[in-house]
Amino acid sequence: MRHPLRGAGVFVVALLGAAPAFATSTGITGQSGKDGVTCSTCHKGGEMPTVVLEGPTTLEPGATGQYTFIIRGGAAKTGGVGIAVDSTAANLQAGTGMKKLGNELTHTAPQAFTGTELRFNFSLVAPSTDVTLTVFGAGNSTNADQGSDGDRAASTKLSVKVGNGSPVVDPVPGGEGDGGGGCTAASSAPVWALALMALPLAARRRRQR
Protein backbone atom coordinates (compact mmCIF):
# COMPACT_ATOMS: atom_id res chain seq x y z
CA MET A 1 0.00 0.00 0.00
CA ARG A 2 1.36 3.43 -0.93
CA HIS A 3 1.68 5.92 1.89
CA PRO A 4 -0.62 8.91 1.27
CA LEU A 5 2.03 11.42 2.47
CA ARG A 6 4.82 10.15 0.21
CA GLY A 7 3.68 12.25 -2.74
CA ALA A 8 3.14 15.22 -0.45
CA GLY A 9 6.72 14.89 0.79
CA VAL A 10 8.04 15.03 -2.74
CA PHE A 11 5.90 18.09 -3.37
CA VAL A 12 7.29 19.84 -0.27
CA VAL A 13 10.87 19.11 -1.32
CA ALA A 14 10.13 20.50 -4.76
CA LEU A 15 8.78 23.70 -3.24
CA LEU A 16 11.80 24.08 -0.98
CA GLY A 17 14.10 23.63 -3.92
CA ALA A 18 12.35 26.42 -5.79
CA ALA A 19 12.25 28.75 -2.78
CA PRO A 20 15.38 30.79 -3.60
CA ALA A 21 14.08 31.73 -7.03
CA PHE A 22 10.65 32.75 -5.69
CA ALA A 23 12.15 34.55 -2.67
CA THR A 24 14.23 36.88 -4.85
CA SER A 25 11.58 37.45 -7.52
CA THR A 26 10.29 40.45 -5.57
CA GLY A 27 13.76 41.91 -5.08
CA ILE A 28 16.45 41.77 -2.40
CA THR A 29 19.22 44.11 -1.28
CA GLY A 30 22.97 43.61 -1.42
CA GLN A 31 23.04 42.67 -5.13
CA SER A 32 23.98 46.04 -6.69
CA GLY A 33 27.68 45.24 -7.10
CA LYS A 34 28.60 47.85 -4.46
CA ASP A 35 30.16 45.13 -2.30
CA GLY A 36 31.20 42.93 -5.24
CA VAL A 37 28.02 40.83 -5.16
CA THR A 38 25.35 40.58 -7.91
CA CYS A 39 22.53 38.21 -8.84
CA SER A 40 25.08 36.08 -10.72
CA THR A 41 25.91 34.51 -7.37
CA CYS A 42 22.78 32.39 -7.88
CA HIS A 43 21.68 33.05 -11.47
CA LYS A 44 24.12 31.38 -13.85
CA GLY A 45 24.52 29.78 -17.24
CA GLY A 46 22.92 32.44 -19.37
CA GLU A 47 24.44 34.87 -21.83
CA MET A 48 26.01 37.97 -20.26
CA PRO A 49 23.88 41.10 -20.77
CA THR A 50 25.23 44.63 -21.04
CA VAL A 51 24.15 47.28 -18.53
CA VAL A 52 24.49 51.05 -18.36
CA LEU A 53 23.57 53.85 -15.96
CA GLU A 54 22.39 57.03 -17.66
CA GLY A 55 21.85 60.39 -15.98
CA PRO A 56 23.61 63.61 -14.90
CA THR A 57 27.18 63.28 -13.65
CA THR A 58 27.00 66.63 -11.83
CA LEU A 59 24.33 67.90 -9.42
CA GLU A 60 23.95 70.93 -7.20
CA PRO A 61 23.78 70.17 -3.45
CA GLY A 62 20.23 69.12 -2.55
CA ALA A 63 19.18 68.80 -6.20
CA THR A 64 17.30 65.80 -7.66
CA GLY A 65 18.63 63.98 -10.71
CA GLN A 66 16.73 61.56 -12.94
CA TYR A 67 18.52 58.33 -13.83
CA THR A 68 17.89 55.21 -15.90
CA PHE A 69 19.40 51.76 -15.50
CA ILE A 70 19.28 49.83 -18.77
CA ILE A 71 19.72 46.08 -19.33
CA ARG A 72 20.34 44.90 -22.89
CA GLY A 73 20.70 41.36 -24.20
CA GLY A 74 21.14 38.14 -22.30
CA ALA A 75 18.09 35.86 -22.04
CA ALA A 76 16.03 39.07 -22.35
CA LYS A 77 12.63 37.72 -21.22
CA THR A 78 12.33 39.33 -17.79
CA GLY A 79 14.80 41.08 -15.52
CA GLY A 80 15.49 42.55 -12.12
CA VAL A 81 17.71 45.27 -10.73
CA GLY A 82 19.65 46.42 -7.67
CA ILE A 83 20.72 50.06 -7.17
CA ALA A 84 22.85 51.50 -4.35
CA VAL A 85 24.88 54.62 -3.60
CA ASP A 86 28.00 54.92 -1.44
CA SER A 87 26.69 57.76 0.77
CA THR A 88 23.89 57.51 3.33
CA ALA A 89 23.37 61.27 2.88
CA ALA A 90 22.13 60.64 -0.68
CA ASN A 91 18.52 59.56 -1.14
CA LEU A 92 17.45 57.08 -3.83
CA GLN A 93 13.82 57.21 -4.96
CA ALA A 94 12.11 54.30 -6.74
CA GLY A 95 10.42 54.59 -10.11
CA THR A 96 7.83 52.37 -11.79
CA GLY A 97 8.36 48.65 -11.15
CA MET A 98 10.81 49.39 -8.33
CA LYS A 99 10.74 49.74 -4.55
CA LYS A 100 13.07 50.90 -1.80
CA LEU A 101 14.48 48.43 0.72
CA GLY A 102 16.66 50.10 3.33
CA ASN A 103 18.91 52.51 1.41
CA GLU A 104 18.78 50.52 -1.85
CA LEU A 105 16.39 50.12 -4.77
CA THR A 106 15.23 46.85 -6.30
CA HIS A 107 12.41 45.52 -8.50
CA THR A 108 8.91 44.82 -7.18
CA ALA A 109 8.59 41.78 -9.50
CA PRO A 110 10.42 40.53 -12.60
CA GLN A 111 9.85 43.12 -15.33
CA ALA A 112 9.31 42.21 -18.98
CA PHE A 113 11.80 43.28 -21.64
CA THR A 114 10.72 45.45 -24.55
CA GLY A 115 12.52 43.77 -27.42
CA THR A 116 16.06 43.19 -26.12
CA GLU A 117 15.99 46.07 -23.63
CA LEU A 118 14.69 46.68 -20.11
CA ARG A 119 14.73 50.12 -18.43
CA PHE A 120 14.40 51.08 -14.76
CA ASN A 121 13.91 54.78 -14.00
CA PHE A 122 14.77 56.22 -10.59
CA SER A 123 15.77 59.48 -8.88
CA LEU A 124 18.75 60.52 -6.77
CA VAL A 125 18.46 63.38 -4.28
CA ALA A 126 21.95 64.76 -3.71
CA PRO A 127 23.31 65.54 -0.24
CA SER A 128 23.34 69.18 0.88
CA THR A 129 27.15 69.29 0.97
CA ASP A 130 29.87 68.98 -1.66
CA VAL A 131 30.80 65.35 -2.27
CA THR A 132 31.53 62.90 -5.06
CA LEU A 133 29.10 59.98 -5.09
CA THR A 134 29.27 56.58 -6.74
CA VAL A 135 26.01 55.00 -7.88
CA PHE A 136 26.16 51.21 -8.27
CA GLY A 137 23.75 49.16 -10.38
CA ALA A 138 23.37 45.49 -11.32
CA GLY A 139 20.79 43.97 -13.62
CA ASN A 140 19.73 40.37 -14.12
CA SER A 141 18.54 39.20 -17.56
CA THR A 142 16.46 36.05 -17.15
CA ASN A 143 14.65 33.45 -19.25
CA ALA A 144 11.46 33.81 -17.13
CA ASP A 145 11.31 30.15 -16.06
CA GLN A 146 11.39 31.16 -12.34
CA GLY A 147 14.59 29.18 -11.89
CA SER A 148 18.20 30.29 -11.62
CA ASP A 149 19.64 28.49 -14.66
CA GLY A 150 20.00 30.22 -18.01
CA ASP A 151 20.11 33.70 -16.45
CA ARG A 152 23.00 36.14 -16.00
CA ALA A 153 23.65 39.50 -14.31
CA ALA A 154 26.06 42.34 -15.02
CA SER A 155 26.97 45.46 -13.06
CA THR A 156 28.21 48.99 -13.62
CA LYS A 157 28.71 52.24 -11.70
CA LEU A 158 28.47 56.00 -12.26
CA SER A 159 30.34 58.83 -10.54
CA VAL A 160 28.25 61.90 -9.65
CA LYS A 161 29.91 65.14 -8.56
CA VAL A 162 27.79 67.15 -6.13
CA GLY A 163 28.70 70.84 -5.98
CA ASN A 164 32.49 71.08 -5.98
CA GLY A 165 32.86 67.38 -5.32
CA SER A 166 34.88 65.81 -2.54
CA PRO A 167 37.42 68.21 -0.99
CA VAL A 168 40.97 67.96 -2.32
CA VAL A 169 43.43 67.37 0.50
CA ASP A 170 46.14 70.06 0.46
CA PRO A 171 49.75 68.88 0.84
CA VAL A 172 51.16 69.16 4.35
CA PRO A 173 53.47 72.23 4.59
CA GLY A 174 57.04 71.02 4.44
CA GLY A 175 55.90 67.56 3.38
CA GLU A 176 56.38 65.65 0.17
CA GLY A 177 54.88 67.51 -2.77
CA ASP A 178 54.97 70.90 -1.03
CA GLY A 179 55.99 73.45 -3.66
CA GLY A 180 57.32 75.91 -1.07
CA GLY A 181 60.60 74.12 -0.56
CA GLY A 182 59.55 72.35 2.61
CA CYS A 183 62.14 71.51 5.24
CA THR A 184 65.08 72.34 2.95
CA ALA A 185 64.08 75.99 2.64
CA ALA A 186 63.20 76.28 6.31
CA SER A 187 66.46 74.78 7.49
CA SER A 188 68.55 77.09 5.26
CA ALA A 189 67.39 80.27 7.07
CA PRO A 190 69.38 79.63 10.29
CA VAL A 191 72.55 79.05 8.22
CA TRP A 192 72.32 82.54 6.65
CA ALA A 193 71.48 84.05 10.03
CA LEU A 194 74.58 82.47 11.62
CA ALA A 195 76.75 83.68 8.76
CA LEU A 196 75.57 87.29 9.23
CA MET A 197 76.09 87.12 12.97
CA ALA A 198 79.64 85.87 12.47
CA LEU A 199 80.75 88.89 10.36
CA PRO A 200 81.10 91.43 13.25
CA LEU A 201 82.95 88.86 15.33
CA ALA A 202 85.48 88.24 12.53
CA ALA A 203 86.03 92.01 12.03
CA ARG A 204 86.66 92.50 15.79
CA ARG A 205 89.29 89.76 15.82
CA ARG A 206 91.14 91.40 12.89
CA ARG A 207 91.32 94.74 14.74
CA GLN A 208 92.70 93.03 17.85
CA ARG A 209 95.58 91.61 15.81
Rank of each mutant, 00 (worst) to 15 (best):
M1F: 12
R2Y: 06
F11W: 11
V13E: 03
V13A: 02
A14S: 12
S25C: 02
S25M: 11
G27S: 14
S32A: 12
G36A: 13
S40Y: 10
K44M: 08
G45M: 05
P49H: 00
V52W: 00
L53Q: 03
L59R: 11
P61Q: 09
G62R: 04
A63P: 00
A63I: 08
T64N: 04
T64S: 06
G65I: 07
Q66A: 13
T68D: 08
T68N: 09
T68M: 06
T68C: 02
G73K: 08
A76E: 02
G79F: 10
G79A: 08
A84H: 04
L92E: 02
Q93F: 04
Q93L: 15
A94M: 01
A94V: 07
T96H: 08
G97I: 00
K99Y: 04
K100H: 03
G102L: 01
G102P: 04
N103Q: 14
N103R: 07
T106R: 07
H107Y: 15
A112C: 05
A112N: 14
F113Y: 15
G115D: 05
F120Y: 12
L124S: 01
L124K: 08
V125G: 01
T129F: 05
V131N: 10
L133M: 09
T134W: 01
T134R: 14
F136G: 08
F136D: 11
A138K: 04
G139F: 06
N140C: 12
N140Y: 11
T142Q: 14
G147E: 06
G147N: 04
S148A: 11
R152C: 04
A154N: 12
S155F: 09
K157M: 10
S159K: 09
V162H: 03
G163V: 05
G165F: 02
G165D: 09
P167H: 02
P171A: 14
P171M: 08
V172F: 03
P173M: 05
G174A: 10
G174C: 04
G182T: 02
T184G: 03
T184F: 03
S187Y: 02
S188K: 14
A198S: 06
A202G: 03
Q208P: 08
R209L: 09
R209F: 02
